[in-house]
Design a protein around this nucleic acid. Structure first.
Lengths: 302, 302
DNA sequence: TTCAGGCATAAGCGCTCCTTATGGGCCGTG
DNA sequence: CACGGCCCATAAGGAGCGCTTATGCCTGAA
């Protein structure tokens, strides 16, 4: 659309020159304005001259000890100042306003079993930061979604992002004490075979069974019912519906208050872990740095 | 004032990037925005990336077939657009607004005896141009006064200005027919000696007397009374108070209607002339070009 | 008269910003 | 299902804008 192009080009003034004009009009001094803008007096003089040529009229009258605005300059100055105030405000708002809202994409399980219990201390430490949680198991693409930082599970090798390991995604069977009591307690791995297995198709079960020396064929026979999130399976386990295989680190509260028990110390580990990830380019953004430092300290401290 | 400097520098965004942002936000397309701004898509991409780094947050989400504003971008876009509208308006107003007012500095005599009678046709030809006359005999300095164009009398060799000769500042005696009748008509130069000479100390009288073969000693004896402007002396002459030596070209109307007569064809010429002058740099400014072309045609046509 | 303050101007160069070229991702179509 | 088109990202390279330094001029004050 060439007509748009020519229209715009001719309609907008040289911006750098306008910025200088605004400062000079405010100070009524080339030297002072140049100082404010961090450049030399000669540069200011150059820009004003440039702008005057573009406008087609002098903007300042050069009087011996000072300069004054011409009529044309007087007409232009107020609007220009206002425009820059607007621009500066919008820019500042975007800078700090963006800092006021932290969008965290997190896995459902992590959100309900870890963040929900810890986020309070982050809010206390950063009261001006509003946290928006976006829980989904999708692998977020920072370029396509309005997400600042994410919790992911996996191998930790994603390109273009900064990663910090939170904890290993090891896994171990867990069940309610009441369910365990129905068979007189779970003493050894084989006891599990006498109980319902939640999501027996899960590769974790297979890995753990192998590690525990149990026959994996058993699993195949079980009716499959994947709920797709540890939190759901854990709830089923708490309700006594079966044994779930989950990451122990995410259920410390349930273990502590006895809703769940972890019958064996043996944990499986497929090399996966929970990671904190965010775009490398944004590692120094205040709110991202704040969240990173908080969560790493929180993980290390517990 | 270093604190001002740092404040400003950090507060204002990179303007070129902001301009690109405004266009991209309007089109929601890098390619189209780049087209509007007359640059390549790569350049727009570069500037947006730059701005995003400065703001500390992404401004657009890159979706497959289009881009959308992030929250931060949405906050910034309206204010930025408004600011640019303001800027564009102020700039356009200064460009055309400056064209709407033409400040002419002119000699008193020229204003009252030539411009006053001709300016009407200029107004008709350029109805949108308001002309402000600044009559004074000072030599205006375009850098110090808010003047677009000037009429000057002199040798025509001024530095830094464009000059056009309007007519020679030749001079010749003029008087009212009634005064001439009091001595039975003015037939030859010597007749003037029998009449009052207005401003006899004027160098023009001396030059003309010499050219006419009259004794200049006569002039020295006369009581001096310079009025400093031809218009005043001409008025005195019209009132019959004496003989004035003035530039004939400026009194064509008075000659035509008989208020003044020019008894001799002999004119003095000291090499001076009336000139149209204006800053060289502004020779192509529309209103200046308009006035120049008009006055030269007017002079040539009469 | 000299000095200080302020703007204009010239020369020179660095750095921003733009261009060209290329690649990748996604969508529609044959 | 593969291909072409559309759009954005990125890298490398170059041009010109816009800055700096240096200097001069003018004016008003001491």
């Amino acid at each position: 659309m060439p007509e748009l192009k020519s229209r715009q080009v001719s309609q907008l003034p040289p911006l750098q020159a306008i910025r200088v004009f605004e400062a000079v009009a405010r100070h009524l001094s080339f030297t002072k304005a140049a100082g404010e803008l961090g450049m030399t007096q000669a540069a200011a003089s150059y820009q004003i001259k440039l702008l005057e040529e573009r406008v087609g009229a002098p903007l300042f009258l050069r009087r011996p000890r000072q300069i004054v605005l011409t009529e044309a300059g007087q007409r232009m100055a107020p609007a220009v100042s206002e425009a820059f105030a607007l621009l500066g405000g919008a820019y500042a708002a975007a800078r700090s306003g963006a800092d006021g809202m932290l969008c965290v994409s997190t896995l459902l399980t992590f959100a309900s079993n870890w963040l929900a219990q810890h986020l309070g201390s982050f809010q206390v430490a950063h009261p001006s930061l509003a946290v928006r949680l976006d829980t989904s198991n999708r692998l977020v693409d920072f370029a396509r979604e309005d997400i600042d930082i994410a919790i992911r599970s996996g191998g930790g090798n994603w390109p273009g992002v900064e990663v910090h390991k939170l904890f290993n995604a090891d896994f171990t069977p867990m069940l309610s004490p009441k369910l365990a009591a129905t068979i007189g307690g779970v003493k050894e791995p084989a006891d599990l075979l006498r109980l319902p297995i939640l999501d027996p198709g899960d590769i974790w079960w297979r890995d753990w069974f192998i590690a525990a020396g149990l026959p994996v064929e058993e699993l195949a026979k079980r009716p499959g019912s994947s709920m797709g999130a540890q939190a759901y399976e854990a709830n089923a386990a708490i309700a006594g519906q079966g044994v779930a295989i989950v990451t122990a680190a995410l259920f410390k509260a349930e273990l502590a208050d006895g809703r769940l028990i972890q019958p064996f110390d043996l944990v499986g580990d497929d090399g996966h872990a929970y990671w904190l990830v965010y775009p490398q380019a944004r590692r120094n953004v205040p709110k991202i740095r704040a969240f990173r430092e908080w969560i790493l300290a929180e993980i290390a401290g517990q």
